[in-house]
Each structure stands twice: as C-alpha cells, then as structure tokens.
C-alpha cells in the first residue's frame, strides 16, 4: 500500500470489486426483487381486490414490503468477506475502515435497492396507487432503502454467524422512524400537501446515519475478532 493511494481510491476499489462480484451472481439482486413482489401480491389476496381499499393502502404496503426485502437482502453482506478474510485485510490496512464499510453498503444499495424501486413502480399499478404520487414514492424509497441498508449492515454485523431472524428483531425497532417518515411523505403527497419538510428530515437522518451507523458497524464487526 503506497502513500499515493488516497482513501477515495480505496473506497472506489472496494465499491468496484463488490459491484463486479454481485453482478456475477444474479441471486444477489433477483432474490430481494422476487421477495418484494411476492409480499406485495399477498396484500390484495388477503385484503380482497377492492380498488378503493387497495389504493388507500398502497403506499403503506409498498413501503413495508420494500423495508422488509431490503432488510432481508442485507443479511449476508459481511458473511462471505468474513469467512475468506477480506474483512481482516480492511482492518490491517491503514485506511479508516468505516469508509470501506460504507462502500460495501453503497454497493448493496445500488444492487438491491434499484430493482426494488423499479418493482415498486410496477406494483403501484397493481395496487391502484394514484399516479400523481409516483415521484414522491421513488424519492422516499430511494432515501429509505439506503437508510435500511445502513441499519441492516449493523444488524448483520451484530449477528454475524447467528440466526437471520435475530438481526431482523434487532434492526426493526430502529427502522420505525424511517417507516414513519416515508409514509408521512406518501400521505402528504396523496393529500397534495408540501412534503419537502419530511424529505429534509429523512436527509438529516441519513447525514447522521451514514458516518454514525458505519462507525458502529465497525465496532460490531470487531466483536467477531475476539
């Protein structure tokens, strides 16, 4: 490792490596997509196909499904790298590890979040979501899934090598503020009110969450080296 390489170079390197790996394995981006679509399909089956009922609940249904699927997808984010020793390399490098961890989370968000957002546009048709609020849906999901990926990474680090359900139980209570903000954006958009305030708050949560959660994730990964 030479001094010429800046932290940004390392960040890009990790991002590129992870992107290549996940594109090579199609399961990483197809599984959350399919999970999302199946969960969304459950709601009309359980609630009945009434158009007015579904359209009033559509935003909430899409949000809950997106939240759950991005949370489940992030579960295995560190397990492979932990097993083959890539994570060890992060810690012996002189770079700030949390930046590299953020690269991994970002890659995960790009690979899993984007298909979910595409699928949510598709399912908004299934659920008769008013078409005027599509923009609000996409914006809120973009910010929301990034926050979920960050939280999910922390959960995955805390429960490395333990059951997946544990990580879900740890992380879900912490994801409630995101869910509330996301659905607040949607209900404001449906009522044709100004929702930029809620978007700023979500942005604020991300601004604190990106460095804060990545640092805590590093702490949590370190636990597994004792």
């Amino acid at each position: 490792m030479t001094n010429r390489d800046s932290t940004l170079d390392w960040f890009m390197l990790v991002l590129r490596r992870d992107l290549t790996l996940s594109f090579r394995r199609s399961a990483t981006y197809i599984t959350p997509l399919i999970f999302f679509l199946i969960v969304v399909t459950f709601f009309p089956l359980a609630l009945g196909p009434s158009q007015s009922l579904l359209s009033s609940m559509a935003a909430g249904i899409i949000w809950i499904s997106a939240l759950l699927s991005s949370l489940l997808a992030v579960e295995g984010i560190f397990s492979e790298d932990f097993r083959d020793g890539t994570l060890d390399q992060y810690f012996v490098s002189s770079e700030p590890v949390f930046v590299l961890i953020f690269a991994k989370v970002l890659c995960h968000w790009l690979v899993c979040g984007a298909p979910i957002i595409l699928a949510s546009v598709l399912s908004s048709v299934f659920l008769y979501l008013p078409s005027g609020v599509l923009f609000a849906l996409i914006i809120s999901l973009l910010l929301g899934t990034l926050f979920m990926s960050l939280l999910g990474a922390l959960g995955a680090a805390l429960s490395l090598g333990r059951s997946a359900i544990l990580s879900a139980i740890i992380v879900l209570p912490f994801s409630i503020p995101t869910l509330l903000m996301g659905t607040a954006i949607m209900s404001a958009a449906i009522n044709q009110q100004d929702y930029s305030g809620f978007i700023s708050i979500m942005g604020a949560m991300l601004a604190i969450g990106i460095p804060g959660l990545c640092l805590l994730t590093v702490e949590a990964i370190l636990l597994n080296y004792e």
């Binding site: 922390l154 805390l158 429960s159 333990r162 059951s163 544990l166 139980i169 740890i170 879900l172 209570p173 912490f174 804060g212 959660l213 805590l216 702490e219 949590a220 636990l223 004792e226």
Partner: peptide, 25 residues
C-alpha cells in the same frame, strides 16, 4: 431488542459490547 441480543450471545463480555452499540444508537 437489547434484552434479546444480550441473551443470544454466549460470551457475556462480547454481549456487553454488542448491547452497548444498540444502547448508544
């Protein structure tokens, strides 16, 4: 969540540190 996480980790010192992360968050 804090009680659940702590009871799921065998090694108690490790559990303490895991739980302190959640408490701070």
């Amino acid at each position: 969540a804090i009680i659940g996480l702590h009871s799921s980790i065998e090694n108690k010192t490790k559990g303490d540190r895991a739980v302190s992360i959640l408490a701070v968050l």
